[in-house]
Amino acid sequence: MVLRLTDVAVARGGVPVLGAVTFELEPGRALVLRGPNGSGKTTLLRAIAGLQPVLSGRIEGAEDTVAYAGHADGLKAMLSVAENLQFWAAVYGRREIDAALETYALAPLADRLAGTLSAGQKRRAGLARLMVTDRPIWVLDEPTVSLDIAAVGMFADAVRAHLDGGGMALLATHIDLGIEAQVLDITGMRAAPDALHGASDEAFL
């Protein structure tokens, strides 16, 4: 199973931001997206996760294989960390959450309400969600925001273990995780002018 993007163009708010993105990701490999703010990293990742359509080009191998972690953690403030993870595990048809709790050192926090955690602890719980999904492709948008050095280490270990198990990871990040990864700099990949045609996604406004 390979994730393959062929000449993909994406738009945000009706404006094409990226064009001609082509890459391939094989099992056990990671790809890091680099680019300045507003260059379209988030938009591309959302398109790969299936949350928004592409303007042109093709994305293959992403159907039902992607676990997406965006800027928000998807945690409910009034549920405990364990309840949050159990819910997501059940949605993905699984039960086991202990490994995820252990990897991110969340066991002491398992019974705390997610709303009472610090930003970094919430982020760790949000990343732990990826481990209970059992999906092969992790799509991560700025995963290390508000993590301290120790937690970044935990995250890097989790990604490495995922890759060793034959998984794939696609990250938009600016810090060096110490993971062996291809780097794709999307700075130069602006959308072609003719991509403007039919770019509006504003159905209601």
Binding site: G50, L51, Y68, G70, A72, D73, A77, V91, Y92
Partner: peptide, 14 residues
Amino acid sequence: FEDGTLDVLATAPL
């Protein structure tokens, strides 16, 4: 929507 649950739910097998 605010806490990102909908995004994850939209990509989930359900």
